[in-house]
Design a protein around this nucleic acid. Structure first.
Lengths: 184, 184
DNA sequence: AGCATATATATCGATCCGATATAAGATTCG
DNA sequence: CGAATCTTATATCGGATCGATATATATGCT
């Protein structure tokens, strides 16, 4: 799913400007699994308009920055549905947090633990954010997705909270040779 | 974490060629949360060598393609640790599957359900793959990460298996008026 | 008045990704 | 035996993407 399909999908929920498309992608549920930048959106919209997949209508509201409202055309709708029907590409996750865990033995234990604590706080915020958007769910598959997102956040939080103490203990006392350890 | 840091991290576990770095990144636990291509690895290694963060040693084994073995220098190790100590960037997930769910109301129900079934099968494979690599864990934080990965896969699988029947029912019979619900 | 923030479009450079070119040894299999 | 294919190995290209920045105007705050 490249930036073009992302734009078509957001527009399938209603006309929007490039700026509004970006805003919608920053909020749940999109924010959970898709992201893109202005540097991708504006070129994508321009090409989609050239290809006839969206129609652009310049809108000059009084005393506001001029914007272009893009709408999905029947051709664009076809392209969207065709893309959605393809077997999905495998997920691609890029997580600095998990990466840091993997090489955590290179860091001082207190720093590593503080990074985990920050992660827990961040996940709590994300979870609350997702729980808040419950009323906006309409379609069955949207509700299914919402439940899956909640299950994901909750299981990660549970794991981090339950296993942090054990990790802290293991990092503090790397008990390999238990003889003569008065200093520690 | 750009391609340079990825290379430094892999090399911190031992010298390797560019090709071997790619192979290691394709296997668990790296494959869970990082990925990159030759098009990123080779330029990154060249620049790291120029900057003195890795040392390159050409190795011509008899009757094999010539390769360069890269090793981490003390400078490279410093850079790696400095990068790991930074507050991690937020995760970035790109998931066509979740995206398809969000717009699932645009697809014929049987197609959507078959996509979910394929996902379940894929997750089962990934989970088995991760369970297999248990013996290779050494550090406490590595074990912590491994457990987190298992918890993630298991919770996703549980959710999909438990909620698929309900979604199938909702898609088949879009019962909007809740009077007369003998079937359910 | 001054400053920060929000709305809005657009582009640039650096990076990144997927495909491809090149090449030689290893494996497979009729 | 030979042909096809796979694995190892390096490298680059074009297109896509990302993060930062430029440009403007309107709003809100103190």
């Amino acid at each position: 799913m490249d930036a073009k399909i992302l734009c078509l999908a957001v527009l399938s929920r209603g006309p929007a400007s490039g700026y509004e498309i970006k805003k919608r992608l920053e909020q749940p549920p999109h924010a959970l699994f898709q992201d893109t930048s202005f540097g991708s959106i504006y070129p994508a919209l321009r090409r989609l308009a050239e290809e006839g997949a969206v129609s652009a209508e310049p809108l000059v509201e009084d005393r506001r920055p001029a914007k272009k409202i893009f709408s999905l055309t029947p051709l664009g709708r076809e392209r969207l549905i065709a893309a959605l029907g393809q077997p999905p590409q495998p997920d691609r996750l890029r997580s600095d947090f998990l990466f840091t865990l993997l090489y955590g033995d290179l860091l001082p234990p207190p720093l590593l633990l503080s990074i985990i604590d920050a992660r827990i706080a961040e996940l709590e915020g994300k979870l609350a954010w997702m729980e808040d958007c419950e009323p906006s769910i309409t379609s069955p598959s949207g509700a299914f997705l919402h439940g899956l997102g909640l299950a994901y956040y909750r299981s990660c939080l549970d794991y981090l909270r339950q296993n942090r103490p054990r990790l802290a203990a293991e990092l503090q006392g790397p008990v390999q040779e238990p003889h003569d350890r008065a200093a520690e």
